[in-house]
Computed example of a mutant assay.
Amino acid sequence: MFTFKEYSQEIFATVILLISLIALRIIVANLIRSYAKTSQLIEHRTNLVIKYTHILMNILVTVCLIVIWGVETKDIFITVSSIATVIGVAMFAQWSILSNITSGMILFFSFPFKIGDTIKIHDKDFPLEAEIEDISTFHVNLRTKEGEKIIFPNNLLLQKGISIMPAKYEDREFYD
Rank of each mutant, 00 (worst) to 15 (best):
Y52P: 01
T53N: 08
I55V: 15
I55D: 04
L56Y: 15
M57Q: 13
N58Y: 15
L60T: 14
L60Y: 10
T62A: 11
T62C: 09
T62K: 05
V63T: 12
V63W: 07
L65F: 09
L65N: 06
L65S: 05
I66D: 05
V67N: 13
W69I: 10
G70I: 12
V71Y: 10
E72G: 10
T73E: 13
K74W: 15
I76E: 13
I76W: 05
I78N: 03
T79V: 14
V80Q: 09
S82W: 12
S82I: 13
S82D: 13
S82Y: 07
I83P: 01
A84Y: 08
A84M: 10
A84C: 08
V86D: 07
V86R: 07
V89D: 05
F92M: 12
Q94A: 13
S96I: 11
I97D: 06
L98I: 13
S99A: 15
N100F: 02
N100S: 10
I101C: 04
T102V: 15
T102D: 11
G104Y: 01
I106T: 08
I106H: 06
I106D: 04
L107S: 03
F108E: 06
F108T: 03
P112W: 15
P112D: 11
F113K: 01
K114F: 03
K114V: 13
I115Q: 04
G116C: 08
T118E: 10
T118Y: 02
I119L: 04
I121M: 04
I121D: 02
I121R: 00
I121E: 01
H122C: 14
H122A: 09
K124D: 12
K124N: 11
F126I: 11
F126D: 11
F126V: 15
F126R: 11
F126P: 03
P127R: 13
L128Q: 04
E129A: 06
E129N: 02
E129R: 03
A130Y: 02
A130K: 02
D134T: 12
D134V: 08
D134R: 08
I135F: 01
I135H: 01
S136V: 07
S136N: 13
T137P: 00
F138C: 04
F138I: 09
H139E: 10
H139P: 00
V140R: 00
N141G: 03
R143D: 05
R143E: 07
T144A: 05
K145L: 12
K145S: 04
K145M: 06
E146A: 02
K149F: 07
I150H: 00
I151H: 07
F152Y: 13
N154W: 00
N155V: 03
N155A: 09
L156V: 05
L156M: 09
L156E: 06
K160T: 08
K160D: 09
G161L: 13
G161V: 07
I162N: 02
I162Q: 06
S163C: 04
S163A: 11
I164F: 05
I164V: 10
M165W: 01
